[in-house]
Design a protein around this nucleic acid. Structure first.
Lengths: 341, 341
DNA sequence: ATCCTGATTTAGATCGATCTAAGTGAGGAG
DNA sequence: CTCCTCACTTAGATCGATCTAAATCAGGAT
């Protein structure tokens, strides 16, 4: 019967029990070729018998290295965020790193606290999607930590921090091209997103420019910003529809926003023939939504992978695979009228 | 200009630079009341000036304690899993712990590897939703680590490991009662879920018993198990509908399964009047799905909170709040015919 | 017999913090 | 003036690993 109060087994215990030195046990545990096969086997057997577990914390104190990477995410319930995390994790674990996701719930305060904790834990690096209200000063504080990190989604120009994001100018253009070209819309709008979200600014700007170039009118009443949740979108759309019909074509800031808008349109009796809706992101479930949602795919999982590669390059671990996100591509479906209902 | 090659600043550097001892600096960093105000302030100022950052890893090596808790999750892209994590995280951070989510992608091998890593990192505890094919031997291996942990969703009887889960017998009964009582269905089915998923077995059993008691017939062709993703459900439902009409009422293993089923029904032209569909979980987006999904709410976030409290009780940190999950409650909406379309 | 080589093994310092038990000094009581 | 508190401060051991530089040893060459 094991003694409740006994101390945890350490390398020294295994060594003493076998009459060898700590250093030998250490070499065995790290799989070094310097020890003889006989020694290795007896050490492993004894370690197992005593119930020894390696203390990674002590080891990384000495080696000054750590294979944990922190993923600081604003909202894991958001499928876009979850998919990005998945991609990053895939690359990191593939190269022997360990991805730990922490959630800030869009609170800058929580975010800074969690980042500081990660620094104190001496993690190898951090991948972060900044919370909405994150300022340049917050990013500067992170930079001061000397910890390698990569920022997603929101750019901080002149901060010198590596950034990975979607090609927002291209996205705006693709959206306009499809709505005005394929569907012949003369009156269109960009709907959703928070003004604090960097992509919204760039996407909307290129949207306006492309609209002007195509001779289409932008409906300004629909361009008021709001928080990007599905329920927020539904409420905002419902309010706008109370005041009149929608523009002929709408590009939504995200698929989540499109879901909310489509629900509102449908309850008011509007169909894709009345109003063509295109989302951005192309989440997995967009194909199964009713109506199926036309969307500009940004491949969140691949973005996550790219992010991880950029971070690893920063850290000094070589990777293969692209260091830039893929080009956005439109997937036409029912919500814009491309497929029958 | 800071020297690239200089060593990191440690407590000793701050102490020397100020002419005090390491112990004093240590006391200041931990906010001890034993140091005088004057000393505290000069230490803090000097630490800041030198760019000192506390080394949590070294501290927990000495104190033998760690405030990191690992959440081992099978699939963060699944919103149910994300909501549970959110709840757990809320309670943990509220009590000074630090929740790190790691993803197993339903791979038992990855899961065991990640668990071992967490043990080696000497985390305070683990909350785990086991991957589907996790066996009793895998759980036994985790138990051997002596690390406090709590299991969600899948029970392992006689393993002695604390378990938190939904009241599956109640869920089956609520579903049958609504379908046969409110909607008068005489032919009903339980649809979806993997046989390896413990809840599926219990829910289906109580579903059958309640159906028999209510004098309703269970459609066996619809009870074939499958993996619980939304696309899997869509495909399985489509295949079944190719062979004939659906039963009058269906209880789905999860909201995700209900989404897939509803899409299939709709494409075949069936309405809630033909087939009443009820989901389980009541995810946030179920209200906005088309049709809005009737669902038996299990309150995933609260389950996550409960889990965290149970783990903390295990660790020895007192918490207030319930240690058992809330009762499931039905939220009737459009998909079963309770609300107009 | 002595020296050299290559393969193993090891003692002692070290990573950066905390803990214990003892030391210091100012101010008040006797 | 001495002694006792009380508030603060500290030296040295310790947590559990790794690293460096040196020791040991068997076998072959000289």
């Amino acid at each position: 019967m094991p003694n409740e109060t006994r101390r945890r087994v350490r390398m020294l215990d295994v060594a003493n029990s076998l009459g060898v030195s700590r250093a030998t046990v250490s070499l065995v545990m790290r799989g070094s070729p310097l020890v003889s096969t006989a020694t290795r086997e007896s050490v492993l057997a004894e370690a197992d018998r005593l119930g020894y577990v390696y203390n990674q914390a002590a080891a990384s104190l000495r080696t000054q290295r750590n294979d944990v990477v922190g993923l600081v995410m604003p909202d894991i319930v958001n499928p876009l965020v979850a998919e990005v995390s998945l991609g990053a994790q895939e690359v990191l674990t593939g190269l022997g790193y360990f991805a730990a996701i922490v959630n800030t719930s869009e609170s800058v305060e929580t975010q800074q606290r969690l980042f500081r904790t990660l620094v104190q834990q001496r993690v190898a690096g951090v991948i972060i999607i900044p919370a909405l209200r994150t300022g340049a000063d917050d990013v500067a504080e992170m930079s001061r930590s000397q910890l390698p990190f990569v920022v997603l989604t929101r750019a901080f120009p002149d901060s010198g921090v590596p950034f990975v994001g979607t090609d927002d100018l291209m996205i705006g253009r693709i959206g306009v091209e499809h709505l005005t070209g394929t569907h012949g819309c003369r009156e269109i709008a960009y709907f959703g997103g928070n003004l604090l979200a960097t992509p919204r600014v760039a996407r909307e700007r290129s949207f306006r420019e492309a609209a002007a170039a195509a001779g289409a009118v932008c409906d300004e009443t629909w361009s008021a910003p709001f928080d990007a949740g599905i329920v927020d979108a539904y409420q905002a759309a419902t309010r706008l529809l109370d005041h009149g019909p929608p523009p002929r074509g709408i590009l939504c800031h995200s698929d989540q926003v499109a879901y909310g808008l489509l629900k509102a349109l449908q309850l008011k009796g509007y169909t894709p023939e009345d109003c063509s809706v295109v989302g951005i992101d192309d989440l997995l479930q967009s194909q199964l939504w009713t109506p199926s949602v036309s969307s500009i795919a940004v491949q969140p999982t691949e973005i996550g992978r790219v992010c991880a590669r950029v971070l690893l390059a920063e850290i000094g671990t070589p990777t293969d695979g692209p260091l830039a996100p893929p080009q956005p591509v439109l997937h036409p479906r029912t919500s814009c009228g491309c497929e029958p209902r």
